[in-house]
Amino acid sequence: MNLYLVLCLGMMGLRLSSADLDLSDLKRELDEQKERLAVLEKELGPNTSPAKNPAVLPELLTKRAQYGYDTVVFSASLNVPFDSSRHNSPIPFDTVTINEGNGYSSATGVFTTPRDGVYMFYTSVAVNGDDAVHAQLQKNGVSQCACTSTHYGSGSCMVIIPLTVGDKVFVKEVFGTHLRAEHLTTFNGMFVI
Rank of each mutant, 00 (worst) to 15 (best):
L3K: 00
Y4N: 00
L7N: 11
C8Q: 04
G10C: 15
M11R: 08
M11Q: 13
M12T: 15
M12G: 11
G13Q: 08
L16Q: 07
S17R: 10
S17N: 12
S17K: 11
A19E: 10
A19W: 09
D20S: 14
L21M: 11
D22M: 14
L23N: 14
S24Y: 14
E29I: 15
E29V: 11
L30W: 01
L30C: 07
L30A: 06
E32N: 12
Q33V: 09
Q33E: 08
K34H: 06
E35R: 05
E35K: 07
R36K: 04
R36Q: 05
R36H: 03
V39P: 03
L40C: 11
L40Y: 05
L40D: 11
K42D: 13
E43S: 11
E43Y: 09
E43R: 02
L44D: 08
L44I: 06
G45R: 00
N47I: 14
N47W: 14
T48D: 12
S49P: 14
A51K: 01
K52S: 08
P54S: 15
P54D: 15
A55F: 15
A55L: 12
A55Y: 11
V56F: 07
P58E: 13
E59V: 15
L60E: 01
T62I: 06
R64T: 05
A65V: 13
A65K: 11
G68V: 06
Y69M: 12
Y69W: 15
D70W: 05
A76G: 07
A76L: 04
S77F: 08
P81W: 02
P81G: 08
F82K: 01
D83V: 06
S84D: 13
S85F: 10
N88W: 08
P92R: 00
F93S: 00
T95Y: 02
V96T: 09
V96N: 02
I98S: 04
I98V: 12
I98E: 06
N99E: 10
G103P: 12
Y104P: 04
Y104D: 05
S105Y: 05
S106R: 02
S106M: 06
A107Y: 10
T112F: 04
R115L: 10
D116P: 04
D116Y: 02
G117D: 03
G117Q: 02
G117Y: 01
Y122S: 05
T123Y: 04
S124E: 09
A126K: 03
A126I: 10
V127Q: 08
G129W: 04
V133G: 03
H134G: 08
H134N: 07
H134A: 08
Q136Y: 04
L137C: 10
K139Y: 15
K139H: 12
S143G: 10
Q144M: 09
Q144K: 03
C145P: 04
C145Q: 01
C145R: 00
C145W: 00
A146E: 05
A146M: 02
A146W: 00
C147P: 01
T148A: 10
T148F: 09
G153W: 00
S156N: 11
M158S: 14
V159F: 10
I160F: 13
P162Y: 13
G166D: 13
K168G: 14
V169L: 06
V169M: 04
F170Y: 13
K172C: 01
V174L: 03
T177K: 01
L179R: 01
L179D: 07
A181P: 02
E182F: 09
E182P: 15
H183M: 11
L184C: 08
L184W: 04
T185N: 00
F187I: 12
F191P: 03
V192W: 02
I193Q: 05
I193V: 09
